[in-house]
Design a protein around this nucleic acid. Structure first.
Lengths: 330, 330
DNA sequence: CCCGCTCCTGTAAACGCTTACACACGGATG
DNA sequence: CATCCGTGTGTAAGCGTTTACAGGAGCGGG
């Protein structure tokens, strides 16, 4: 089943069939209708590989993430994919597992499959690996890390805003001993959150009370960090976590120590993963809309692909505190 | 950059380059080494679309699921994808959103991209839509629904086993008023779980005490169903849920009513999604290994693609109770 | 009536690879 | 020394599209 058979049935040439498929305006409506009917009758689907081979456009996009089982990502993937499918594009996904070697593999796969563009949504993108993409002029969109250029755009996430709101919220609830459980310090995004916490304290004259414990953005790290914080003689009355998984781990550690949230300790997360409002109590956290991120990234990528040399906007995603049940006035 | 340039640089023909890439044993080691060096030097990646066009094999597999944001699926997707990438295959994912129309779209995309096979992991696969695949002789693997045939295999999930273990567990803890919150009754997999609950009660002479409330496999449905159960004069002392999300909703409703789990009511879930052991208390549930499911499905699909007419007929995945903190003796 | 134009359609050459087939070479065999 | 065979390599024909280019039909103007 191919374009030739359709052509034969519609009594036209393959070129006309092709033009009809591609909605070229140079086909007379009557002819197009005949072709479409033939396509219908034969149940013909054009071969995308042949199309790609000759046109150079694969209508596929790459999406590189850290780990689909990390609850931060599924919504991101879904929104991105929805955007793509709506526009007749396919998405191929790469999980890096936080591993540069796998990242290299992902990039290779993207290149081999001739994707039209790649969105890199890991927080640990290694610039060296990405040159493989830029060298081939494959449009690329980054999250946080990466520079805006001819073939690449960067989506900034305003981590500081959300963290500042969190600090302000706790401050206004009379908390003064506010601790922070950070993420891995090799991640720029984690450093930005910690720095925002520090600057938030500083601007309220609380610099001397800063307590930063290191986590790993996972549950276990959050629990460990929290256990350390609980050992401090003047233990914190409130804790901000670098992400929700950390907060969930911290929550477990607090309960395990026989204390209560928010009665004894107020707790704030970051990301607003879907579990965040299923904890007991529901977690006060900072919303980072993955849908918005995906939509923005997709739009940026599309602009790059179409070579819209338009006003290279500075894409940015806001973050905001959402109050639920894990914080309380002192 | 193409195979010709590699051929020129290695001073061989394109055929030899192709053979080297495909690890044909008919190339003299010395020649192959020269070719590989040329490939290395030129940083050549073969064009998969051209390969597919001529060979008919796309090295892509389709994976159709209901919704990646449903926590049941990410692990499944990941394991499946890992299998694929290990073997140089690509995976394209389709979310049906529990919507037959989108399901049709997914299938169309798979056909257009000429996938070598499709794994359908939704519980609501419509046989009519799938004929599109079988008609084109595209190997297909189903979860639960679907028949084993020349070009398709079916992975049975032994829901009954896990449910029976759950009933037995509660029974041995002296529970006699055991309720069940079911899933959507149009899903065969949900009916199987409910039926297993009923047969479990029956075999223990508790048929007259059966209480089945309908949920929707989501949190809200679980909460609603639980609220109904709490209104029963002789309310249940234990509840088995058709899946974990339902149990999480039920848990919320129980706490909201001022009762405690497991002190007042024992609760059992199904699936063992990752959040199940993060609830307070950690949820006793039935493990359905998504990794095992993915590995099995992948193997079945591969066998079908290779046309292994071997004895692989009946694939089956077991389910087992895992005891955590949400059940207690009466 | 012819010319030139606009529209529409057809012809055929790519796109980058795989693979059937042909063939060259050297060693073994009779 | 002629023949045969196995091994390794080259030639070239596709795979199913898109698209540059060519060409025919119809029409208005000169």
């Amino acid at each position: 089943m191919n374009i030739k058979e359709v052509a034969k049935r519609a009594k036209v040439s393959t070129a006309t069939v092709s033009r009809t498929i591609n909605d070229s305006e140079k086909v007379r409506p009557g002819t197009a209708a005949r072709v479409r009917q033939a396509i219908e009758e034969l149940n013909f689907y054009p071969n995308t590989h042949a199309r790609t081979l000759v046109s150079g456009r694969s209508r596929m996009l790459g999406l590189i993430i850290s780990d689909i089982t990390n609850p931060f990502f599924p919504e991101l993937v879904k929104s991105f994919e929805d955007q793509a499918v709506e526009r007749g594009q396919e998405v191929i996904i790469g999980n890096t597992d936080y591993n540069p070697k796998r990242m290299a593999g992902c990039i290779r796969r993207m290149v081999e499959r001739k994707v039209d563009g790649v969105a890199i949504m890991t927080s640990e993108a290694d610039p060296a690996l990405v040159t493989e993409l830029t060298r081939r002029n494959i449009p690329t969109v980054f999250m946080d890390t990466g520079k805006t250029g001819l073939h690449s755009a960067n989506i900034r996430i305003d981590y500081a805003q959300g963290i500042h709101e969190a600090v302000q919220h706790l401050f206004s609830l009379n908390h003064r001993r506010i601790a922070f459980i950070a993420g891995p310090m090799n991640l720029e995004s984690a450093r930005m959150r910690r720095d925002a916490y520090l600057s938030g304290l500083k601007s309220r004259g609380l610099s001397d009370k800063a307590m930063v414990e290191k986590g790993d953005h996972r549950i276990e790290g959050g629990a460990m960090a929290m256990r350390s914080l609980l050992k401090i003689p003047q233990r914190p009355t409130a804790v901000i976590s670098s992400n929700d998984l950390t907060a969930i781990g911290a929550l477990g550690a607090i309960l395990h120590a026989g204390l209560k949230v928010p009665d004894d300790i107020s707790l704030i997360g970051f990301d607003d993963i879907s579990f965040a409002n299923l904890t007991q109590p529901p977690l006060t956290t900072v919303i980072l809309s993955r849908t918005q991120l995906a939509v923005t990234a997709f739009a940026a990528l599309e602009a790059l692909i179409r070579k819209d040399e338009g006003p290279h906007v500075d894409y940015s995603i806001p973050t905001h505190l959402v109050m639920r049940g894990s914080t309380r006035a002192l």
